[in-house]
Design a protein around this nucleic acid. Structure first.
Length: 293
DNA sequence: AACATAGGCAACCGCAGGCCT
DNA sequence: AAGGCCTGCGGTTGCCTATGT
């Protein structure tokens, strides 16, 4: 193995704010070629930036489907509740907020929500520490919040897997309802898992889920009704589907649509989203192609 | 109008984990 | 097995703008 570091020419990477021209170059390049290896994107796109900077710019600002502007009351509530459960796991919190980035959630929390929660919580440790992942030490109020969140997650906004499903919940899976509040007989035992978690665990490992429905691999999170016993189809509805769809070339389809997945289909990050074909009437995805994200 | 301060946000930094050679 | 690279994540910094004096 040679020393590749020594072979690389030293580049004075540009830092600081991105110009509109740089944005355009990066966007054009990725939309055409996909990002592939980030460290080579900058050079190929004609930018004097390092790969890390390009990746960050794409994820936080340029990628399709991003929501800009102020957080809605629902989003705010979601952040507060998930932060109470997960602590500073911004990427995991952001998974539950379609169109929001971890950076955006983090900034919103640090600049606004932290103070708001501090007011609510008064002088207890939550406001100052913010790392309340140790559920054993949580206040009764926090337990109440956690219980409420858990119930909501078991409700209609989140996936409930039918009892007959054969989804394998691997040990690495983070199970949201493992909190003490949900132990015992009042809540059904596993498997019940957030759809986004279910997908992201798959994403994390880069493997297909070992179930009979074929591997699905994407990170969006939206209101949906799932029927994994029916050949891996799931239906998306509600306003979030619009955000989802805006990720695919601004197709402004609102309302319900249905995605069909075959056993061999896989949707995962890595290449270009405009390879995706979508039948607006039937709403089926051509999953021979990958979806960027 | 000029300056000081605070807040918001974009971007950078450093670390960890996984993968490759 | 060891070292290097790449990616993702959370923490932090610094710039810009709004607001107050």
């Amino acid at each position: 193995m040679g020393c590749r570091t020594c072979e690389k020419p030293r580049v004075n990477y540009r830092k600081g704010l991105w110009s509109p021209e740089e944005d355009q170059s990066l966007r054009d390049y990725i939309l055409e070629h996909g990002h592939g290896c980030w460290s080579t994107v900058a050079a190929k796109a004609g930018l004097q930036r390092n790969g890390k900077s390009c990746r960050l710019r794409w994820i936080n600002y340029l990628r399709p489907g991003l929501k800009r502007g102020i957080f809605s009351a629902e989003e705010e509530e979601t952040v507060i509740k998930l932060h109470a459960m997960l602590g500073n796991k911004w990427s995991q919190i952001a998974m539950h907020l379609p169109g929001r980035t971890d950076n955006e959630v983090k900034n919103y929390w640090n600049s606004y929500l932290k103070k708001k929660v501090a007011k609510i919580e008064g002088s207890n440790s939550y406001a100052s520490g913010t790392k309340s992942q140790d559920t054993a030490n949580q206040s009764p109020k926090m337990n109440q919040i956690l219980e409420e969140v858990g119930k909501q997650m078991l409700g209609s906004n989140f996936l409930e897997l039918p009892d007959s499903s054969s989804v394998d919940l691997r040990p690495s899976a983070r199970c949201i309802i493992s909190h003490d509040s949900f132990k015992g007989t009042q809540h059904p035992p596993l498997p019940k898992v957030l759809f986004a978690d279910w997908l992201s665990m798959d994403h994390a490992t880069g493997q297909s889920l070992p179930n009979s429905n074929g591997g699905m691999n994407c990170q969006w999170d939206f209101n949906l009704h799932a029927d994994v016993s029916n050949y891996g189809s799931f239906q998306v509805d509600g306003p979030s589907s619009g955000d989802f769809l805006r990720g695919f070339g601004d197709s402004s389809i609102y309302g319900g649509f249905q995605l069909q997945f075959g056993p061999g289909d896989q949707i995962q990050g890595g290449t270009c989203y405009n390879d995706l074909s979508m039948d607006e009437t039937g709403g089926s995805l051509d999953t021979d192609h990958d979806i960027i994200y």
